[in-house]
Design a protein around this nucleic acid. Structure first.
Length: 607
RNA sequence: ACCCCCGUAGCUCAGGGGAUAGAGCAUCGGUUUCCUAAACCGAGGGUCACAGGUUCGAAUCCUGUCGGGGGUACCA
């Protein structure tokens, strides 16, 4: 059981007498929370509210509750302060025994969920045949982190990458293949050549005055591409054959980026093409069930009240209806999304389906979920895991000089190169001050720079509340001070350095952990923070907010720094104290490693 | 026009009914014969956009105003 749950449960008996209703009691128990260290370890805030309800005086009620706490070996002191706060301090001996148990556990004390759930998470979802751009970054790494987190907590997660593999970009590729192909280059590296072709065709469209949006562009090249796309959709054998020939290479281009970013392989990558021949069935079923009907040549699902708003006045009040089939006979993404729901429910039987997609599509998801529920999928939870935009330093969406969305790989390269540069500066600086710096091979240094660069980008993103926009700033992301991935990785490397320096085998501190002793405030603070690991994961999972994990790790790293400064480990006063501290160092390293792993971020043994 | 999100320290951001509102950066001051100084310690810095309301208690909830961003049926 998590630390917070254990503390809360202590109030259960005393509260049960006063608040018989279970749901209400749970709400009051929720008012037990960590507190500012000056007040203690935890505070219970329910006495004021409860006293009001019972018509009693808060401090008196608080004292009565304190008096009714069950006998336990958890609480050192419970005192009533201010208008009726109950401040708790936990026993050192209890913290020590809990930490020792945590060290002995391969899962670091994280218990299995009472009711494991099955999730389908839809994230990343790039258009294949186009370079990944910065807009895909957040969906990909937030989805990846949530997948890792939920799985670690004991839930079942099916990941599905809903690729855009049936759109205009294939018309562009086919057009490029027929007009601009470099045979030798294609033979040598098809992925690279196809990427080049896409870029060339895009610039042809732009150069002939088509503007940025190739789908809207009006010029001969864009129209030629659209004709190829139409042939693909019509099933023209030669065009379809080209599509089939390109697809593996297009996928490989995307997988290369995923591997570099350390993204878990997807369970499924069912793109638009996969659902293509299921769309007419969706429309037919919707029509048959009377949910959808024809309107002005299109097939639409009216809004919740059954009204198709025509006047502005109506549009204000009603959610927009959904279009399933356009007047020209083409299907929309709503249709595709509905087909996806049907398929996923039938094949994966999920309790919840999560869509990690940026906030601009909030209205789409709101209406699409409503349609899916009306179609009969009421019991499965559907949630739009929304996130904000990645902005440049100017506060505008991150763009290239040409005005296109910034591509992802150059950003990663920039970060890893900066990582390399920072490493060399730090190395020289540390050497100059006579510090013990590991002499590493060039290959190892490059590997560190890669881990640091990629980690910095991911950590910077995941450490934000996902719902807000954030400014992309490589210098800040790679700062070695503050709440950054680099700082966390360094904290881990420091943990490992102690074991290396002392030539201590950490296995003993896991298989049969020694007793933990508390001799210094910094030690106690570290213990308490270590024990909060599970709570941070539970909060992050409940809210689907990875930044709770980074926030926790940051607090842990700070607690470790305080400990590292004031508590010598290898030269501790006694063998018992040395063992106790080695255990804390090892456990801190394990928690940082595990926490970063849940965020999809690598650690390195030396920096 | 309507709907959604946001407005917290110079900057970047946490906190979203609970005590005197936090962190990092930046600024200023200090620490290295000592396990990694890519580190640590300390100081200053606030009309929580504004105005009402609800509450024992509001940065947090409600209403309105101002400012910024996004969206508004055949792209999602």
């Amino acid at each position: 059981m998590s630390l917070l749950s254990q503390v809360r449960s202590l109030f259960e008996p005393a509260l049960a007498v006063l608040v018989p209703d279970h749901a209400e009691r749970t709400e009051y128990l929720g008012m037990v929370r960590p507190t500012d260290p000056k007040n203690g370890d935890y505070q219970a805030n329910f006495a004021m509210k409860l006293a009001k309800q019972l018509g009693r005086k808060p401090p008196e009620l608080a004292n009565e509750i304190v008096g009714n706490l069950p006998p336990n070996d958890v609480i050192e002191s419970a005192t009533v302060a201010g208008p009726g706060f109950i401040n708790l301090k936990l026993k050192d001996s209890w913290l020590a025994s809990q930490v020792r148990a945590m060290a002995a556990d391969a899962r670091l004390g994280v218990s299995a969920p009472e009711t494991p759930r099955r999730y389908v998470i839809d994230y990343s979802s790039p258009n294949v045949a186009k370079p990944l751009h910065v807009g895909h970054l957040r969906s990909t790494i937030i989805g990846d982190a949530l997948t890792r987190l939920l799985r670690f907590l004991g839930h079942s997660v099916v990941t599905d990458n809903h690729l855009g593999d049936w759109g205009t970009q294939f018309g562009m590729l086919i057009h490029g293949y027929r007009h601009f192909l470099d045979q030798a280059a294609y033979k040598a590296d098809p992925v690279r050549e196809l990427t080049r072709l896409y870029i060339q065709v895009r610039s042809e469209i732009t150069a002939t005055g088509g503007g940025d949006d190739e789908e809207e562009a009006i010029n001969p090249v864009a129209e030629a591409c659209r004709r190829e796309t139409a042939k693909l959709h019509a099933g023209d054998p030669e065009t379809v054959a080209l599509w089939k020939q390109f697809m593996p290479h297009c996928l490989e281009a995307i997988h290369r980026v995923y591997r570099r970013l350390g993204i878990l392989p997807f369970d499924y990558e069912h793109g638009e093409s996969f659902y293509n021949d299921r769309l007419s069935g969706v429309v037919a079923d919707m029509l048959a069930k009377g949910i959808a009907h024809e309107s002005q040549g299109a097939v639409v699902i009216p809004n919740a009240k059954g009204v198709i708003p025509r006047t502005e006045e109506e549009q204000k009040k009603e959610e927009p209806p959904a279009i399933l089939r356009k007047r020209d006979g083409a299907f929309t993404y709503t249709t595709s999304d509905l087909a996806t729901v049907k398929y996923r429910v039938e094949h994966f039987r999920p309790d919840a389906m999560l869509y990690v997609v940026d906030f601009r599509q909030a209205l789409h998801f709101k209406t699409f979920f409503a349609q899916a529920r009306r179609w009969g999928y009421e019991t499965v939870e559907m949630q739009h895991v929304s996130f904000g935009s990645v902005l440049g330093k100017d506060g505008r969406p991150l763009k290239t000089r040409e005005g296109n969305a910034a591509e992802l790989l150059p950003l990663i390269d920039e970060a890893t190169q900066l990582g390399l540069q920072k490493y060399r500066e730090s190395y020289a600086d540390r050497k100059a001050h006579g510090h013990d710096v590991p002499d590493l091979s060039d290959e190892t240094i490059r590997d560190i720079a890669e881990a640091v660069g990629v980690g910095a980008v991911k950590y910077a993103d995941l450490s934000q509340n996902r719902t807000s926009d954030y400014k992309y700033d490589p210098e800040k992301m790679l700062a070695t001070e503050g709440n950054t991935g680099t700082y966390m990785q360094y904290a881990y490397a420091r943990c490992r350095a102690i074991f290396r320096k002392g030539q201590v085998d950490e296995a003993r501190f896991r298989a049969d952990p020694p007793a933990v002793v508390i001799t210094h405030p910094a030690e106690r603070a570290l213990l308490l923070q270590l024990l909060r690991f599970e709570d941070s994961l539970l909060t992050a999972a409940a809210e689907l907010m990875p930044h709770h994990v980074t926030g926790y790790l940051w607090d842990l790293a700070k607690a470790f720094s305080g400990f590292f400064e004031s508590c010598p480990v290898l030269t501790a006063a006694s063998p018992e104290l040395r063992d106790s501290r080695l255990l804390l160092v090892d456990l801190t390293g394990r928690v940082i490693h595990q926490g970063l792993d849940l965020l999809g971020i690598r650690t390195v043994e030396r920096m």
